[in-house]
């Protein structure tokens, strides 16, 4: 199996993180005296400094991945370390806080930290799970090739329905024209299908109805097969049905892979801005604690 960001170097950074957690634990447990465990004890300060250094270093990944001449190790190694050390922050920061939470800027910083870390967890999940899923959906085709295939299917469908009656032509062509794959970012994230098609009702009125997952269109064509007017029609309808089902498969696969791709991106729009907010909150937290002295 390919080495991913978790298994990188046999999960070397996992052990580093576990060691870090262990050390933090001993530092935390060594707190004694009248105050007990607290962010303000010498041990608390050590843990706080450690956590701050970690946060700043974690944020520097954004710089590292844009420093193309950097000699500070590969981004792959950074990412693996980022994931494990970032996760260890939950424990280190908790020990620093000594589990004293309230409604104040300090706890707010902690909350932001957790948001960043958990959005990161989603990112790890997405980065590890989705690429293989997307490849499986694409059947070995590149995005462009899939679109080309979609286009050629469309051409074949057009060539086939041209020989059928106008009602059928109208419905099929409207369904193709109104097939929605991408749509807005939200549509992509939810894999929302806004496909529509025109349908003749009562022989004269034309309604625009939903064509979700292309199934209504397929059912419409299938319904026509045993009700053909001409002897040649069933054959044409059958090949049309075949083309439409192939197209359906392709459209649905494209929709899902777009959804997965969108998911692989979207978490960064949470992770990064909150990281910046965290840095600001952290600065306020650090500066403000000096006033307690």
């Amino acid at each position: 199996m390919s080495e991913n960001m978790l298994s990188y170097r046999k999960s070397y950074y996992l052990y580093i993180s576990l060691t870090l957690i262990l050390i933090s634990y001993f530092i935390y447990r060594s707190q004694a005296g009248i105050e007990g465990s607290n962010g303000g004890t010498p041990q608390g300060y050590i843990l706080g400094t450690l956590a701050t250094v970690l946060v700043v270093w974690l944020a520097l990944l954004g710089v590292r991945k844009r420093s193309f001449q950097s000699r500070l190790g590969s981004v792959k190694a950074w990412v693996s370390a980022h994931v494990y050390l970032g996760s260890s922050l939950i424990v280190v920061a908790s020990f620093h806080s000594a589990f004293q939470l309230g409604i104040n800027i300090h706890s707010f910083a902690f909350l932001l930290l957790l948001l960043v870390i958990f959005s990161g967890f989603y990112g790890v999940f997405a980065y590890i799970r989705y690429p293989a899923k997307i490849v499986a959906l694409s059947n070995g085709r590149s995005g462009e090739e899939s679109l080309a295939l979609l286009n050629s299917l469309k051409e074949e469908i057009v060539a086939t329905y041209k020989e059928l009656d106008s009602e059928l032509q109208m419905t099929v062509s409207s369904a193709i024209e109104r097939t929605g794959i991408a749509g807005s970012t939200l549509d992509m994230l939810l894999a929302r299908d806004k496909s529509m098609m025109c349908l003749t009702v009562f022989g004269t009125r034309v309604d625009v109805v939903s064509n979700r997952a292309q199934q209504p269109l397929i059912d419409f064509v299938a319904k026509r097969i045993p009700r053909g007017n001409r002897a040649t029609e069933p054959e044409l309808l059958l090949s049309l049905l075949n083309l439409l089902t192939r197209r359906q498969q392709l459209v649905e696969n494209l929709r899902v892979s777009l959804q997965l791709k969108a998911r692989m991106r979207v978490w960064l729009f949470i992770h990064t801005p909150i990281s910046v907010a965290l840095l600001v909150a952290l600065t306020i937290h650090v500066v403000s604690v000096f006033f307690y002295w």
């Binding site: 960001m5 990188y8 193309f68 981004v75 792959k76």
Partner: peptide, 16 residues
């Protein structure tokens, strides 16, 4: 000219 080798490889976050 880059000591750490091809940038396309060293910058890949997942090692793909």
């Amino acid at each position: 000219s880059i000591k750490t080798g091809p940038a396309c490889v060293s910058v890949c976050p997942t090692g793909a």
